[in-house]
Amino acid sequence: MKHLRSIDELGRDGLVRLLDLTNHMVEVNRRPVPKVPALRGRTVVSLFFEDSTRTRLSFETAAKRLSADTMTFSVSTSSVNKGESLRDTVETITDMGVDAFVVRHKSTGIPWQISNWTNASVVNAGDGWHQHPTQALVDCFTVREALGKERFDGLTITIVGDIKHSRVARSNVTAFNMLGAKVVLVAPPTLLPPDVSHWPVEVSYKLDDVLESTDILYMLRLQSERMSQGHVPNLREYAESYGLDAARVAKLPPHAVIMHPGPMNRGVEMLIDPSSLPNSLIHRQVANGVSVRMAVLFDLLAGESSAANLAQVAS
């Protein structure tokens, strides 16, 4: 695998391979000294044009635990502010000798454009509304870990919220589907993509109608600017219809689990203190972020010697 840009590109086999590899990384992270020399001498640069806490920190931690060198590119202090183009920026960094770019950008397609300008690997850490493949890997791994199942056949995963503008939803719908789950999307029609009828999902406009048949409830963040764009009249109305409160939690089957990719909007989609949720996987999602991203970087960068390196990781 040269790049990780979308779940489609990764494919089902790639998805399963990375999830399996993540098990080894979890084991590494349990050691007293959670560090292995697998990527010694490799350089990973994180190129974040959008704010991020979890994704950027977990990638950097992942790289360091694999002994890769890391560079952090900060837009606010870079020559981008002097008008340097993205291409020139990428070519400049490439000239310094890097092995992977971890990229987040507000525009769809940037990881594909960057991969035309560098021979390094490109990892998509979120592009516009399009894809966030490592989040999907984190979520699939977290479900696997929580339910002890490798396949998701028979599971109903309900994704609630702003599907239209969500790269997490686009990656997760594909990934959950590849593993056999039934996916239900819940949102007002204004927050659904214009032609969702072609997606392998069921759609509901009413959260209360689908809670009883939900095994995994996946809440998405509603960005407050959606209100000013007229997608919803106001946040109160959204919270009433789609927010998770105690009454809705009570309607879920007892075995159901709750997920959220963060950051949460308390008082909007999350009307209940998440620490009081009986079956929340939200902390597991964050915790697994490092292991999953170690697996991704290892898979992309360990290269020819990956089998030997894997032994090293597992030892």
Partner: peptide
């Protein structure tokens, strides 16, 4: 604005 823009997450021109 089409099936393709829905998947790519690109704003559609209807």
């Amino acid at each position: 604005e089409c099936q393709c823009c829905t998947s790519l997450g690109l704003p559609g021109w209807p």
